[in-house]
Protein backbone atom coordinates (compact mmCIF):
# COMPACT_ATOMS: atom_id res chain seq x y z
CA UNK A 1 0.00 0.00 0.00
CA UNK A 2 2.78 2.43 0.86
CA UNK A 3 4.02 2.58 -2.72
CA UNK A 4 0.63 3.84 -3.93
CA UNK A 5 0.59 7.63 -4.19
CA UNK A 6 -2.95 8.13 -5.45
CA UNK A 7 -5.87 5.73 -5.39
CA UNK A 8 -9.29 6.56 -6.86
CA UNK A 9 -12.34 4.28 -6.96
CA UNK A 10 -15.75 5.02 -8.43
CA UNK A 11 -15.28 8.79 -8.33
CA UNK A 12 -18.37 10.72 -9.39
CA UNK A 13 -19.01 14.43 -9.44
CA UNK A 14 -21.82 16.54 -10.86
CA UNK A 15 -22.24 20.28 -11.30
CA UNK A 16 -25.98 20.58 -10.93
CA UNK A 17 -27.56 18.32 -13.56
CA UNK A 18 -24.27 17.90 -15.49
CA UNK A 19 -22.37 14.73 -14.61
CA UNK A 20 -18.67 15.66 -14.92
CA UNK A 21 -17.05 12.49 -13.57
CA UNK A 22 -18.77 9.15 -14.15
CA UNK A 23 -17.05 6.62 -11.94
CA UNK A 24 -13.29 7.15 -12.36
CA UNK A 25 -10.78 4.53 -11.17
CA UNK A 26 -7.08 5.40 -11.05
CA UNK A 27 -3.93 4.06 -9.37
CA UNK A 28 -0.69 6.01 -9.34
CA UNK A 29 2.48 4.39 -8.03
CA UNK A 30 5.01 6.45 -6.16
CA UNK A 31 7.65 7.88 -8.44
CA UNK A 32 5.79 7.55 -11.73
CA UNK A 33 4.90 10.19 -14.27
CA UNK A 34 1.25 9.72 -15.11
CA UNK A 35 -0.63 11.62 -17.77
CA UNK A 36 -4.31 12.29 -17.84
CA UNK A 37 -5.13 12.80 -21.50
CA UNK A 38 -8.43 14.00 -22.82
CA UNK A 39 -10.26 16.63 -24.84
CA UNK A 40 -11.37 19.92 -23.32
CA UNK A 41 -14.34 19.40 -21.05
CA UNK A 42 -13.49 15.77 -20.31
CA UNK A 43 -13.29 16.48 -16.58
CA UNK A 44 -9.48 16.53 -16.22
CA UNK A 45 -9.29 19.73 -14.20
CA UNK A 46 -12.21 18.74 -11.98
CA UNK A 47 -10.51 15.42 -11.25
CA UNK A 48 -7.19 17.06 -10.44
CA UNK A 49 -8.84 19.69 -8.24
CA UNK A 50 -10.60 16.95 -6.28
CA UNK A 51 -7.24 15.21 -5.76
CA UNK A 52 -5.74 18.53 -4.65
CA UNK A 53 -8.49 18.94 -2.05
CA UNK A 54 -10.09 22.04 -3.59
CA UNK A 55 -13.46 20.53 -4.45
CA UNK A 56 -16.15 19.01 -2.34
CA UNK A 57 -19.44 17.42 -3.27
CA UNK A 58 -17.98 14.32 -4.97
CA UNK A 59 -18.70 10.71 -4.12
CA UNK A 60 -16.51 7.64 -4.27
CA UNK A 61 -13.17 6.75 -2.69
CA UNK A 62 -10.16 9.02 -3.06
CA UNK A 63 -6.82 8.68 -1.30
CA UNK A 64 -3.86 10.92 -1.97
CA UNK A 65 -0.78 9.96 0.05
CA UNK A 66 -3.10 7.85 2.18
CA UNK A 67 -5.54 10.64 3.08
CA UNK A 68 -8.91 11.87 1.93
CA UNK A 69 -8.18 15.23 0.21
CA UNK A 70 -11.47 16.75 1.40
CA UNK A 71 -10.42 16.33 5.04
CA UNK A 72 -6.61 16.38 5.02
CA UNK A 73 -4.75 19.13 6.89
CA UNK A 74 -1.67 21.29 6.50
CA UNK A 75 0.84 18.45 7.05
CA UNK A 76 -0.68 16.66 4.05
CA UNK A 77 -0.84 19.84 1.98
CA UNK A 78 2.86 20.43 2.64
CA UNK A 79 3.59 17.21 0.69
CA UNK A 80 1.78 18.38 -2.47
CA UNK A 81 3.02 20.62 -5.25
CA UNK A 82 0.33 22.31 -7.31
CA UNK A 83 0.70 23.94 -10.72
CA UNK A 84 -2.71 25.04 -11.95
CA UNK A 85 -3.81 26.31 -15.34
CA UNK A 86 -2.86 29.85 -16.36
CA UNK A 87 -1.76 31.41 -13.11
CA UNK A 88 -1.26 35.19 -12.95
CA UNK A 89 -0.98 35.60 -9.18
CA UNK A 90 1.30 37.99 -7.27
CA UNK A 91 2.02 40.18 -10.34
CA UNK A 92 3.74 42.88 -8.27
CA UNK A 93 6.10 40.51 -6.44
CA UNK A 94 9.65 40.05 -7.61
CA UNK A 95 10.43 36.50 -8.70
CA UNK A 96 12.97 35.77 -5.99
CA UNK A 97 10.90 37.40 -3.22
CA UNK A 98 7.87 35.33 -4.16
CA UNK A 99 9.79 32.06 -4.33
CA UNK A 100 11.46 32.76 -0.96
CA UNK A 101 8.08 33.64 0.58
CA UNK A 102 6.45 30.44 -0.67
CA UNK A 103 9.51 28.42 0.42
CA UNK A 104 9.10 29.77 3.96
CA UNK A 105 5.78 27.88 4.27
CA UNK A 106 7.69 24.56 4.29
CA UNK A 107 9.98 22.84 6.79
CA UNK A 108 12.72 21.74 4.40
CA UNK A 109 12.46 23.74 1.16
CA UNK A 110 14.87 23.76 -1.76
CA UNK A 111 17.54 26.46 -1.80
CA UNK A 112 15.83 29.36 -3.58
CA UNK A 113 18.80 30.48 -5.66
CA UNK A 114 19.69 26.95 -6.71
CA UNK A 115 16.11 26.37 -7.79
CA UNK A 116 16.06 29.62 -9.77
CA UNK A 117 19.24 28.47 -11.53
CA UNK A 118 17.79 25.01 -12.23
CA UNK A 119 14.76 26.59 -13.89
CA UNK A 120 16.76 29.17 -15.81
CA UNK A 121 15.24 32.06 -13.90
CA UNK A 122 18.40 33.54 -12.36
CA UNK A 123 18.39 36.47 -14.79
CA UNK A 124 14.73 37.15 -14.07
CA UNK A 125 15.10 36.90 -10.27
CA UNK A 126 14.66 40.66 -9.76
CA UNK A 127 11.82 41.02 -12.29
CA UNK A 128 8.22 41.37 -11.23
CA UNK A 129 6.14 38.24 -11.82
CA UNK A 130 3.64 40.27 -13.87
CA UNK A 131 6.16 41.12 -16.61
CA UNK A 132 7.53 37.62 -17.26
CA UNK A 133 7.06 35.94 -20.66
CA UNK A 134 4.64 33.01 -20.84
CA UNK A 135 7.43 30.43 -20.65
CA UNK A 136 9.19 32.19 -17.77
CA UNK A 137 5.94 32.54 -15.86
CA UNK A 138 5.21 28.84 -16.29
CA UNK A 139 8.71 27.94 -15.05
CA UNK A 140 8.13 30.18 -12.04
CA UNK A 141 4.86 28.31 -11.41
CA UNK A 142 6.77 25.03 -11.49
CA UNK A 143 9.42 26.45 -9.15
CA UNK A 144 6.65 27.51 -6.72
CA UNK A 145 5.13 24.04 -7.04
CA UNK A 146 8.31 22.12 -6.21
CA UNK A 147 10.12 24.45 -3.79
CA UNK A 148 8.64 22.60 -0.79
CA UNK A 149 10.04 19.23 -1.99
CA UNK A 150 6.62 17.66 -2.60
CA UNK A 151 5.97 13.92 -2.84
CA UNK A 152 3.24 14.48 -5.43
CA UNK A 153 3.30 17.16 -8.11
CA UNK A 154 0.14 18.13 -10.01
CA UNK A 155 0.62 19.83 -13.37
CA UNK A 156 -2.63 20.97 -15.01
CA UNK A 157 -2.10 21.63 -18.74
CA UNK A 158 1.35 23.04 -18.09
CA UNK A 159 2.31 23.82 -21.68
CA UNK A 160 -0.86 25.44 -23.04
CA UNK A 161 0.19 28.45 -25.08
CA UNK A 162 3.86 27.48 -25.28
CA UNK A 163 5.86 27.81 -28.48
CA UNK A 164 7.59 24.57 -29.58
CA UNK A 165 10.93 25.52 -28.04
CA UNK A 166 9.46 26.45 -24.66
CA UNK A 167 7.46 23.24 -24.75
CA UNK A 168 10.59 21.18 -25.40
CA UNK A 169 12.46 22.88 -22.56
CA UNK A 170 9.53 22.22 -20.28
CA UNK A 171 9.47 18.53 -21.19
CA UNK A 172 13.18 18.24 -20.41
CA UNK A 173 12.57 19.88 -17.05
CA UNK A 174 9.74 17.49 -16.14
CA UNK A 175 11.90 14.51 -17.12
CA UNK A 176 14.66 15.84 -14.89
CA UNK A 177 12.26 16.30 -11.97
CA UNK A 178 10.78 12.85 -12.45
CA UNK A 179 14.29 11.43 -12.24
CA UNK A 180 14.52 12.56 -8.63
CA UNK A 181 13.49 9.62 -6.51
CA UNK A 182 10.01 9.39 -5.14
CA UNK A 183 8.44 12.38 -6.92
CA UNK A 184 5.09 11.35 -8.39
CA UNK A 185 3.88 13.56 -11.21
CA UNK A 186 0.27 13.75 -12.37
CA UNK A 187 0.02 15.79 -15.52
CA UNK A 188 -3.01 16.71 -17.59
CA UNK A 189 -2.89 17.60 -21.26
CA UNK A 190 -5.02 17.47 -24.37
CA UNK A 191 -1.88 17.05 -26.47
CA UNK A 192 -1.26 13.42 -27.38
CA UNK A 193 2.36 13.98 -28.43
CA UNK A 194 3.10 15.54 -25.05
CA UNK A 195 1.57 12.59 -23.21
CA UNK A 196 3.56 10.12 -25.32
CA UNK A 197 6.79 11.99 -24.81
CA UNK A 198 6.53 12.44 -21.06
CA UNK A 199 4.89 9.67 -19.33
CA UNK A 200 5.25 6.18 -18.11
CA UNK A 201 1.51 5.68 -18.20
CA UNK A 202 -1.38 7.48 -19.82
CA UNK A 203 -5.05 7.40 -18.92
CA UNK A 204 -7.49 8.71 -21.50
CA UNK A 205 -10.39 10.54 -19.91
CA UNK A 206 -13.42 11.14 -22.10
CA UNK A 207 -16.75 12.44 -20.86
CA UNK A 208 -15.87 11.81 -17.23
CA UNK A 209 -14.71 8.22 -17.65
CA UNK A 210 -11.30 6.57 -18.09
CA UNK A 211 -11.65 4.80 -21.44
CA UNK A 212 -8.16 3.31 -21.54
CA UNK A 213 -5.06 3.31 -19.38
CA UNK A 214 -1.52 2.06 -20.01
CA UNK A 215 1.91 2.78 -21.50
CA UNK A 216 2.09 4.81 -24.74
CA UNK A 217 2.65 1.57 -26.69
CA UNK A 218 -0.33 -0.11 -25.05
CA UNK A 219 -2.37 3.00 -25.70
CA UNK A 220 -1.36 2.99 -29.37
CA UNK A 221 -2.43 -0.63 -29.62
CA UNK A 222 -5.67 -0.12 -27.74
CA UNK A 223 -6.76 2.84 -29.77
CA UNK A 224 -5.53 1.61 -33.17
CA UNK A 225 -8.27 2.47 -35.66
CA UNK A 226 -8.78 0.43 -38.86
CA UNK A 227 -6.67 1.20 -41.93
CA UNK A 228 -8.22 2.15 -45.22
CA UNK A 229 -7.35 0.10 -48.34
CA UNK A 230 -8.45 1.72 -51.60
CA UNK A 231 -7.99 0.51 -55.18
CA UNK A 232 -9.47 1.24 -58.60
CA UNK A 233 -12.67 -0.79 -58.08
CA UNK A 234 -13.40 -0.30 -54.40
CA UNK A 235 -12.26 0.41 -50.86
CA UNK A 236 -12.28 -1.44 -47.54
CA UNK A 237 -11.68 -0.55 -43.88
CA UNK A 238 -9.68 -3.28 -42.17
CA UNK A 239 -7.51 -4.05 -39.17
CA UNK A 240 -5.27 -6.15 -41.45
CA UNK A 241 -4.40 -4.00 -44.52
CA UNK A 242 -1.48 -6.21 -45.50
CA UNK A 243 -3.70 -9.29 -45.69
CA UNK A 244 -6.29 -7.43 -47.78
CA UNK A 245 -3.56 -6.26 -50.19
CA UNK A 246 -2.33 -9.84 -50.56
CA UNK A 247 -5.87 -11.05 -51.35
CA UNK A 248 -6.24 -8.28 -53.93
CA UNK A 249 -2.94 -9.26 -55.59
CA UNK A 250 -4.21 -12.83 -55.82
CA UNK A 251 -7.50 -11.70 -57.29
CA UNK A 252 -5.93 -9.42 -59.91
CA UNK A 253 -3.15 -11.94 -60.57
CA UNK A 254 -0.59 -9.13 -60.41
CA UNK A 255 -0.30 -5.42 -59.53
CA UNK A 256 -3.50 -3.95 -58.15
CA UNK A 257 -4.57 -0.83 -60.11
CA UNK A 258 -4.58 2.34 -57.97
CA UNK A 259 -3.73 0.51 -54.73
CA UNK A 260 -3.48 2.81 -51.76
CA UNK A 261 -3.16 1.92 -48.06
CA UNK A 262 -3.72 4.52 -45.37
CA UNK A 263 -2.81 3.68 -41.82
CA UNK A 264 -4.27 6.14 -39.31
CA UNK A 265 -1.79 8.09 -37.22
CA UNK A 266 -1.89 7.64 -33.47
CA UNK A 267 -3.58 11.01 -33.33
CA UNK A 268 -6.37 9.97 -35.67
CA UNK A 269 -6.82 6.81 -33.66
CA UNK A 270 -7.05 8.85 -30.50
CA UNK A 271 -9.65 11.14 -32.05
CA UNK A 272 -11.62 8.09 -33.16
CA UNK A 273 -11.51 6.78 -29.63
CA UNK A 274 -12.86 10.06 -28.29
CA UNK A 275 -15.68 10.06 -30.87
CA UNK A 276 -16.52 6.49 -30.01
CA UNK A 277 -16.54 7.11 -26.26
CA UNK A 278 -18.74 10.18 -26.71
CA UNK A 279 -21.12 8.18 -28.90
CA UNK A 280 -21.42 5.45 -26.29
CA UNK A 281 -22.10 7.98 -23.63
CA UNK A 282 -24.84 9.68 -25.63
CA UNK A 283 -26.44 6.32 -26.35
CA UNK A 284 -26.20 5.46 -22.68
CA UNK A 285 -27.70 8.83 -21.75
CA UNK A 286 -30.62 8.30 -24.13
CA UNK A 287 -31.08 4.80 -22.77
CA UNK A 288 -31.01 6.08 -19.23
CA UNK A 289 -33.63 8.70 -20.02
CA UNK A 290 -36.18 6.16 -21.15
Amino acid sequence: MHDVAIRVRGLRMAYGPVQVLNGVDLDLRRGEVFTLLGPNGAGKTTLVEILEGFRTGWSGEVEVLGENPARAGDAWRARLGVVMQSWRDHPRWRVRDLLAHVAAHYDDPHDVDELLATLGLTDAARNRAGVLSGGQRRRLDVALGIVGRPDVLFLDEPTTGFDPEARREFHLLIERLAGEDGLTVLLTTHDLAEAERLSGRIAVLVAGRVVTCGSPAELAHAVQAPSLVRWADGELETADPSGVAWDLHQRYGGPVPGLEIRRPTLEESYLDLIEEARGTRETAAVGGAR
Binding site: E52, F54, D74, A75, R77, A78, L80, V82, M84, W87, R88, D89, H90, P91, V102, H105, Y106, L144, G148
Partner: peptide
Protein backbone atom coordinates in the same frame (compact mmCIF):
# COMPACT_ATOMS: atom_id res chain seq x y z
CA UNK B 1 -8.09 41.57 -7.09
CA UNK B 2 -6.12 38.87 -5.26
CA UNK B 3 -8.93 36.44 -5.95
CA UNK B 4 -9.16 37.37 -9.62
CA UNK B 5 -5.40 37.07 -10.12
CA UNK B 6 -5.24 33.75 -8.30
CA UNK B 7 -3.23 35.02 -5.31
CA UNK B 8 -5.90 33.69 -2.96
CA UNK B 9 -5.87 30.35 -4.79
CA UNK B 10 -2.08 30.22 -4.44
CA UNK B 11 -2.48 30.75 -0.70
CA UNK B 12 -4.86 27.77 -0.60
CA UNK B 13 -2.21 25.52 -2.17
CA UNK B 14 0.29 26.30 0.63
CA UNK B 15 0.31 24.79 4.12
CA UNK B 16 -1.10 27.50 6.41
CA UNK B 17 -1.37 29.74 3.35
CA UNK B 18 -4.77 31.29 4.11
CA UNK B 19 -3.69 32.31 7.62
CA UNK B 20 -0.50 33.82 6.24
Amino acid sequence: ADREEGTLMRARTLPGGIRV
